[in-house]
């Protein structure tokens, strides 16, 4: 235990995701040794982020304006919506440069243990966007874990009766890797989802 404020700093840092007690201590001492100017800048950035950053009115992505840069971009196709759990999933998909449509960021996945039900996610907003018929395909890209799958099932039921193509991202082997390094669950899933070779 350190004295008062130093320990408080370590505790606060330790509450951040992915930071354990040891890392928190290292960061705290780094901050103590850093020039005051840099620390002030960091503090300002933290404050500004909380003040300025908000969620896009349309898709729920993070932005500093009413609409995020993807929803503002006229080159994006309004016919396809890709549904993801978090804003960081948007970044991941954008890195592929394969997807030219728009997004819907749900803000999590259905998980009763965490107290998250469908009403806590931006599902109603998604349904409103689908109402005018512009959208022809919804791609469900929730995480391939239990809660993500449950959310995907819930969404596909909601969308079933609409005149839409509903697709789900495939799951299986990572590309460019070796088969031998795949874990049993992934490889087992890839076996289940195997496809007929087309000639």
């Amino acid at each position: 235990m350190y004295d008062g404020i130093v320990q408080e700093l370590i505790d606060e840092l330790g509450r951040l995701p992915g930071i354990g007690p040891k890392s928190a201590q290292r960061i705290a001492f780094h901050i103590l040794q850093t020039e005051t100017f840099d620390v002030t800048h960091l503090a300002e950035v933290l404050m500004t982020v909380k003040e300025k950053v908000r969620f896009c009115d349309v898709c729920g992505n993070v932005t500093e304006q009413e609409l995020c840069n993807i929803c503002r971009d006229p080159r994006r196709s309004a016919a396809t919506i890709c549904v993801v759990e978090e804003a960081k999933d948007v970044v991941a998909i954008e890195r592929t440069r394969e997807f030219k449509g728009l997004y819907q960021v749900l803000g999590g996945a259905i998980s009763p243990i965490d107290g998250i039900g469908p009403d806590d996610l931006r599902i109603r907003q998604l349904m409103q966007r689908l109402a005018d018929g512009t959208v022809t395909e919804v791609i469900i890209a929730t995480d391939p874990n239990l809660e993500g799958e449950a959310t995907a099932t819930y969404l596909s039921r909601m969308l079933m009766h609409l005149d839409l193509r509903v697709t789900r991202l495939a799951s299986g082997l990572p590309v460019g890797g070796d088969l031998e390094y795949a874990d049993e669950v992934t490889l087992g899933r890839a076996f289940e989802g195997r496809r007929l070779v087309e000639n």
Partner: peptide
Amino acid sequence: QRNTLLKSARASGVKGNQLGTLDIWDDR
């Protein structure tokens, strides 16, 4: 997950047929 959902349904007095997400967990 399902037990938590059932518990919160009981606490808030939701009827079974209004419990939309229970079906989802039933599937899994």
